[in-house]
Design a protein around this nucleic acid. Sequence first.
RNA 1: GGGGGGGUACCGAAGCGGUCAAACGGGACAGACUGUAAAUCUGUUGGCUCUGCCUUCGCAGGUUCGAAUCCUGCUCCCCCCA
Length: 427
Amino acid sequence: MMDIFEDLKWRGLIHQTTADEFLPGWLGSGSRTLYAGFDPTADSLHVGSLLPLMILRRFQKAGHKPIAIAGGATGMIGDPSGKSAERNLQTQEQLDANLAGIETQMRHVLDFECGDNSAILVNNNDWMSKFSYIEFLRDVGKNFPVNVMLAKDSVKSRLGSEAGLSYTEFSYMLLQAYDFVHLNREHGCELQIGGSDQWGNVTAGIDLGRRMNSVQLYGMTCPLLTKSDGSKMGKTESGAIWLSAERTSPYQFYQYWVNVADEDTGKCLRFLTELSRDEITELDKAREETPHQRESQKRLAEELTRLIHGESGLNAALKATEIFFGAEIDSLTDAELGQIFADVPSKQLSPSRLVDEKIGLIDAVVESGLSKSKSDARRSIKQGSIYVNNSRVDDIEYQLTREDLASESVIVLRSGKRKYALLRFLD
RNA sequence: GGGGGGGUACCGAAGCGGUCAAACGGGACAGACUGUAAAUCUGUUGGCUCUGCCUUCGCAGGUUCGAAUCCUGCUCCCCCCA
């Protein structure tokens, strides 16, 4: 069994634990059960959830049993930690749909069918919803001194803010704490992991375990995955990077990691991949010496895309990358093009236009939406920024014909470096 | 209520009778360079049946061979005095 604690430490994944001295030996001497919580606010996890998920995976590979808890109940309330304003509440239907989506994705990262230490996914709504308000206050609430709760950072910061803190959000801590106690009782779970902003909630659970059941539980937090400029990893101008292919195509996902800044890449490799120390050290060196090769970014992107989208997803992303960065496009199928250009707008035209009517390049560029007027299209072509199937065409008179089809029925137009549009000649 | 200034292309801002599709700056787009970074350099930035034609300078009229530029009315904005 590998030394999980040592590995986490080397990767910089241990921010704080409740038992620094004790945990290494404890983890090394048997299979333990641990859990991390995931917030079901959407039907897909995003890059932000990748870090705790990977930590669970590391534990599982080291022989421990991971529990992922989807906060069906807590998700209805919203964790105030690190949030500046009150959350919107979610409906039951939304939550159910979200949970289903999330589970599918977790299966890529955690093994749910490997015997004793199979991962399990539970929904805290299953036990929380059985509580009556009175019961909860009597059994759980009375174990929480308000003065201790008020001292937690997550509460303090919100009390001082203009938005304030509702009673509902204030209660969040009790729910998460009770989750831990419940999992301990039902599954023998003894360790909770979470981001460093979860410290208050984690220790609340440990306290509750001691008070209710006289058990000793443990907690471990990891650093938050942030960029060197302090912003969150996994966000772009156009929104979050998701783990579902429907929301973020494998190509976009791959590209996100290829474009990680040099300063952040080392951290990402350590935090999010399972590459060995030697490999990571080598990549660090390569990044230092030949930054323009961007070997480590490519490796990072490759590892993560394969994990989340599988070998075929990775291949699609690589093929798309090749094409989006200039490779000529020909002898592909409609299906392949459809996958590669999943994110690209397309325009359907009648096939007869290719044969009988002849479609001039200028008109094609306008119809595809790449240019807003014919004058604009004419200028673009003259300036050499229009490409048909990725080869430049600077002849204003050019007419598209069947010869220009890149697949059975598609011609790929491009303006400039990145802007693509598909013309589909179908009835 | 009185006095003054002003509304120009995506934004800021010149132009104040013809050579104005309208200087200049920013932005945007493209080309070169490059590490799918940044910077830099170059070009483009109303439309079209494109070496020419058409429509634009708050709105509507007028003067003139000719107006973004002059006149009249309307409208909106800013400043000063009440």
